[in-house]
Design a protein around this nucleic acid. Structure first.
Lengths: 359, 359
DNA sequence: CATTTTTATTGGATCGATTCAAATTCCGCT
DNA sequence: AGCGGAATTTGAATCGATCCAATAAAAATG
């Protein structure tokens, strides 16, 4: 038999063992994928040959092409890959996605890329059945890129209006109002807002025009929620400084500097993310200001870190895990329909908010 | 032309647009993969046809089979998928892996499965060029399963002897000695050890025989390191209780109960993981015992949470990030060789250790 | 204008499996 | 022995691309 001509550089294919065992490809294939339909004797012979030739089992690359389905979902973002393991929000979301995938035995492929071209390529070439998109930043670009793949996808935290895209989000207006009302009821009258972007690549105080022409409607809605509620308490929202950050350390600190450099410092800060809120707590304490004694802060998101901070963060909690689960399931049992889900938020009062100072 | 018979359920293939554009499939392929070698005029025509027919671009499934390389590495464990996002150790490791993958543009596929058969299937069918194995538990099974794929793989935290497997680990003996010496020098004489498993699925006090016949040599080495050093201080190591846990909440607490139920309680605990050490701190404080006043604790691993605990954890820090990076690179630029790397550890003194109580 | 070079295009072979209709073998029964 | 139906096995077709040797067309050279 032609089985001892070793030194073969190429790995063994199913066809090789079929030949060696003297059966057709079809039968050989069945031995591995539906062993029950092949006669025991033949089955054992083929398996023995496979074993002896060092066959690694049917190559998934080949199987994939025929089967069409990868049985994995891609999770994509414009941030570097480590974002999935570093960022608290992403981590909780991933836990939800993991749960849904575990339940059906699907895999997870992480897709990301610092630079633009690589991102495009990575999305084009990802071996997945669909995508979950983290649209924290540059969301529209990510959506455009993904749409080209013509695979099902869901956008998360998608801050912009596009009814043709499946998305899961939260009720931003309602959440924001809850936060604002809480602070107003505590007697606060001087506010500042740490805002997410209204459009890409911008930081600094947001002008009314910038707000009006917002690309990211999520940001716009949160601000609208804050303002609506504060107006009801007779507060002049036109005077409230709104600082757009990139939701990271540097620009958030810059925002705080700018806000507190102004005439009358705020006694309450509305932060559109827990990340910014946590940075703010840190910044304020370093400045000798007491939280919540001098300044109260409400975050947005409900990441677990918030509960561990000192003081623990009052926040508008999204059902992050549940969003992750649903997103994954939407891809896993995709039916071709465009779905838009809006989840409720929960108001969590902890230690970072208190009555307005007397002064 | 045959372009308006809509209602086509099947997605468009490259061959379809080649036909529609009146070129060979070879040329059509070039338009997408090496546009520079096809005449501008033809290129534009084909692209236009593709656009107009709604072609999603070359399907990676097809490309993959031809190319042979997936350009992704699989990261596998026997824990559920969420482990990668929950566990502090795993997260730091993943950050290292991410870094290396980002640098070369490779993707990451997460592979896991609660139950045994699914794990086997998931490993067999993962579309990857190689694996990084988290051998926290059931490591030998994971290695066996992966070996069948005949793809390159590296075992991490592999606690067992098998020189035929590429692995990256740390100098367990040296690390353990550092921890033990530190405590002995602080005057401690009564010790207890919170141990990782010596074999699968076992908890409870470890017998000398269990230690001698250890499957996991990592565990054995750490214990050996502890004992060697303590012996040098004239401590009778035979009397030290060694409790095997599953490195999680329940069995660790059970271990502590058992240890403190014995006659003379220890004044120092050597934990083989930060996870157990952190749980121990929590358990002790809940019991009204002061750390390090009444009991000192040294962990092992050096996860970031340790620094944030109260008191901050004294520990033997592994270069986790670096291990992750190296593991990924080992797969990414694999040369067929079996590599075994042993990394050094760093002793980090923080607040969970202090002088032995006077009593 | 004939000849060599260069540049584009073609179409068959290949990657490694699975599927399915058709052909064959096996069995029990009269 | 002959027959029908069930159990197996076969081998061609398919999945969707890329590669490459051969060919054709265009451009450069003598």
């Amino acid at each position: 038999m032609a089985s001892l001509l070793e030194g073969q550089a190429r790995p063994i294919r199913l066809a090789d063992i079929a030949k060696a065992a003297g059966v057709s490809h079809g039968t050989a294939s069945n031995v591995f994928s539906r062993p029950e339909i092949v006669r025991a004797e033949v089955r054992e012979r083929v398996k023995a040959v496979a074993e002896q030739m060092g066959y690694a089992g049917p190559d998934p690359k080949g199987r994939l092409l025929r089967a069409g389905k990868v049985n994995a979902i891609g999770v994509a973002t414009t941030e570097p890959l480590s974002y999935f393991f570093d960022d608290p929000f992403a981590r909780v979301m991933m836990a939800g996605i993991s749960e849904a995938c575990d339940a059906t035995g699907a895999g997870i492929a992480l897709v990301s890329a610092a630079n633009q071209e690589k991102l495009a390529w990575n999305i084009q070439s990802a071996l997945v059945d669909g995508f979950v998109l983290f649209c924290i930043e540059g969301g529209s670009r990510l959506v455009d890129l993904t749409r080209e793949r013509r695979l099902p996808f869901v956008a998360l935290e998608l801050g912009f209006q596009d009814e043709t895209v499946s998305a899961i989000g939260v009720d931003n207006v309602a959440g924001a109002r809850l936060a604002a009302r809480h602070l107003a009821e505590l007697g606060h009258r001087r506010f500042a807002v740490l805002s997410l972007g209204f459009a890409d690549n911008r930081t600094g105080f947001a002008t009314p025009e910038a707000v009006r022409s917002a690309v990211y409607t999520g940001t716009r809605d949160r601000l609208a929620g804050y303002f609506e509620e504060l107006s009801r308490f007779g507060i002049d929202t036109a005077k409230i400084p709104v600082y757009e950050t990139e939701n990271e350390e540097k620009s958030t600190r810059a925002g705080l500097e700018a806000i507190f450099a102004k005439g009358e410092p705020p006694t309450a800060i509305l932060a559109m993310s827990d990340r910014m809120a946590l940075i703010a707590i840190d910044w304020l304490r370093a400045r000798g200001l007491n939280v919540p004694g001098d300044v109260s802060i409400v975050g947005f998101d409900g990441v677990p870190d918030g509960a561990l901070a000192t003081p623990p963060l009052t926040t508008i909690a999204q059902p992050i895990i549940e969003i992750g689960r649903r997103a994954a399931r939407m891809i896993l049992d995709h039916d071709g329909a465009v779905r838009r889900e809006t989840m409720g938020v929960e108001f969590v009062v902890r230690g970072s908010t208190g009555p307005a100072p007397k002064a």
